[in-house]
Design a protein around this nucleic acid. Structure first.
Length: 422
RNA sequence: GGAGAAAUGGCAGAGUGGUCGAAUGCACUGGUCUUGAAAACCAGCGUACCGCAAGGUACCGGGGGUUCGAAUCCCUCUUUCUCCGCCA
């Protein structure tokens, strides 16, 4: 959520910024500013009436104590009109509040100045490309064939017990999952992130805190009986741990990580794009989350990018980094870098990580603040990134490290897997 | 799942209808004293919103109600604790 002060004071730059998303905010912002003015006026009236009522009530109290019953009862009469006024004004203020909140929820984050205008993924910029694409002297297999050949993943069995998009990993496939999770967590810890194991279901307030709600409830699995949501990413529980927190000073840099399964309903396209591990309803991911002073946000983002680059390099995967254009940047993010690994077998780039800064968009909703040098509370910046998402990494490892007879496991994983080849 | 108790400021803990945004203690901040520190003493010390300001409004787990007036009474939800049951 954007801050109302920002909309008031920097109306034009907000509108201009949102144009990079091809989002025309002018009418929403105009009505917001108008409602905000009404709201402040009504609120002023309401508080004046409340103040009078409070004053009279105090007087009545004193009159009763002095035994002046008649005068007290007379004073009570005065409150009747004021009470009605108060009730009416309260209703108007609340109604305006509600309208403003729903308007605010419609506004996406303003893109960072580095973000280019654009409509969709075709307008994304490639900012870096590293490593060599694998060369094969045979026809490389897609990962689903490899997985089948070596009994690593059983998609049909998953369909039987749950449904499409819920694969079962087994044997070396299951061990590879576990190895990657351990490797990613250990690397994150080395980089200073504290490991957490959060709940895999969250309440409604948490969904609002990180921006999944309202609007995107369709992407989450919902447990109606208990009013809980399955997490679509560890970002939700990890960031919401800091919901409503006021940090005592500006000497903070919170770095947290956690492994969780992620659940996405994502009823979407079918066919080649979603074949195998490319798109699942349940997958594993290690997430890194940071809560930073606004001045440190940019540096933190760069550190996170370096961290993800390090992971991919250690796994021997060639990759490219994209800076998403306005239209492809998520609703809550100010800037997002996607990491993609090229799959020769599928002849496509697979998104394996997404690293974003949210500036104050999440912390406004979360009410996550710190005391600045002037002893005033100020909103923190939040950031997060996948480090990394497993399925596509597994797909990329199987496809890009395949040999005629099997698959070579990157050396950094040997101590976790206990085997060097599949 | 059943029965009971409780939820107050950073912590502890008063307050059961009327100047209560809330006593007191601890912690914390500033000052006096001291060569320095401790102790002692003095002062300050919640959050948010509106307002140029003076000031005002709201908040005693959440929501609703009674009342001129609610931390205090009523309803409801949530959470915690104790006991019982069930269980990895």
């Amino acid at each position: 959520m954007l801050e109302i002060q920002r909309i008031r004071n920097e109306k034009q730059s907000v509108i201009e910024g949102l144009k990079k998303r091809h989002f025309d905010a002018s009418s929403i912002i105009d009505s917001l500013i108008q409602k905000d003015e009404e709201w402040r006026a009504k609120k002023g009236e309401l508080e004046a009436v409340s103040s009078q009522l409070n004053q009279i009530s105090k007087e009545i109290g004193m009159l009763f104590q002095q035994g002046k019953q008649a005068e007290a009862n007379e004073a009570k009469q005065q409150t009747i009109v004021l009470k009605t006024q108060e009730t009416n004004l309260k209703g108007e203020v609340d109604a305006l509040d509600e309208v403003m909140t729903s308007l605010m929820y419609q506004l996406p984050n303003v893109p960072n100045e580095l973000v280019k205008a654009g409509r969709n993924e075709n307008d994304n910029e490639t900012v870096e490309e590293n490593g060599q694409p694998p060369k094969f002297d045979f026809t490389p297999l897609p990962h689903w064939d490899i997985a089948d050949k070596f009994r690593l993943i059983d998609f049909e069995l998953g369909v039987k017990i749950t449904g499409a998009g819920f694969p079962i990993y087994r044997g070396k496939g299951a061990k590879l999952q576990r190895a990657l999770i351990s490797f990613f967590l250990d690397e994150a810890e080395k980089a200073g992130y504290e490991e957490h194991t959060p709940p895999h279901v969250v309440n409604e307030a948490s969904g609002f805190g990180t921006g999944q709600l309202p609007d995107k409830e369709g992407q989450m699995y919902y447990i109606a009986e208990d009013d809980l949501y399955l997490i679509p990413t560890a970002e939700v529980p990890l960031t919401n741990m800091y919901r409503g927190v006021l940090l005592p000073d500006e000497n903070f840099s919170i770095k947290i990580t956690g492994y969780t399964p992620c659940f996405r309903r994502e009823a979407g396209s079918y066919g080649k794009d979603v074949r195998g591990l490319n798109r699942l309803h349940q997958f594993d991911k290690v997430e890194i989350v940071r809560i930073e002073h606004p001045d440190n946000s940019e540096a933190a983002l760069n550190e996170m990018i370096d961290h993800v680059k390090g992971l991919l390099e250690k796994l021997g995967l060639q990759y490219r980094i994209l800076r998403l254009c306005g239209g492809d940047t998520g609703f809550a993010a100010a800037m997002t870098y996607d990491f993609e690994v090229y799959s020769a077998a599928q002849d496509k780039w697979l998104e394996v990580s997404s690293v974003s800064r949210f500036d104050t968009f999440q912390s406004t909703r979360l009410k996550l603040r710190f005391k600045n040098v002037d002893k005033k509370s100020q909103l923190c910046h939040t950031l997060n990134g996948s480090a990394l998402a497993l399925p596509r990494i597994v797909a990329a490892l199987l496809e890009n490290h395949q040999t005629k007879d099997g698959v070579n496991i990157p050396e950094v994983l040997h101590k976790y897997t206990g085997f060097k080849t599949i």
